[in-house]
């Protein structure tokens, strides 16, 4: 079982990095880009594990370590 975890700053938290990238894109002429939010992408190999169990574990990993839920939100895909 493999997990793909995406961690991003919450909407309510200003993302200065995303803003800088958006401004750079805009200065290159990509004016259609209204907003950029940066985040982290994490791949985990969980070996042989059941999906429900994997889901539980990933959620716990995200809440405890992979994301800081004060400022970040996360989502994941399992396959």
């Amino acid at each position: 079982m493999k997990a793909k975890v995406y961690v991003t700053l919450k909407k309510s938290v200003l993302d200065p990095q995303g803003k800088a990238v958006q401004q750079a894109l805009s200065s290159m002429g990509f004016n259609e880009v209204k907003d950029v939010r940066m985040g982290k992408y994490i791949e985990l190999d969980l070996g042989a594990i059941e999906k429900t169990q994997a889901e539980q574990k990933i959620k716990s990993m995200c809440e405890k370590l992979l994301a800081n839920t004060v400022i970040e939100e996360f989502r994941y895909e399992l396959n």
């Binding site: 700053l9 938290v13 200003l14 200065p16 800088a20 004060v70 400022i71």
Partner: peptide
């Protein structure tokens, strides 16, 4: 200390990056 929950809040990237 903020990561461990001993203090509230978090420290983000500086505004200027």
């Amino acid at each position: 200390l903020t990561e461990s929950g001993l203090l509230p809040g978090a420290l983000l990237r500086n505004r200027s990056l």
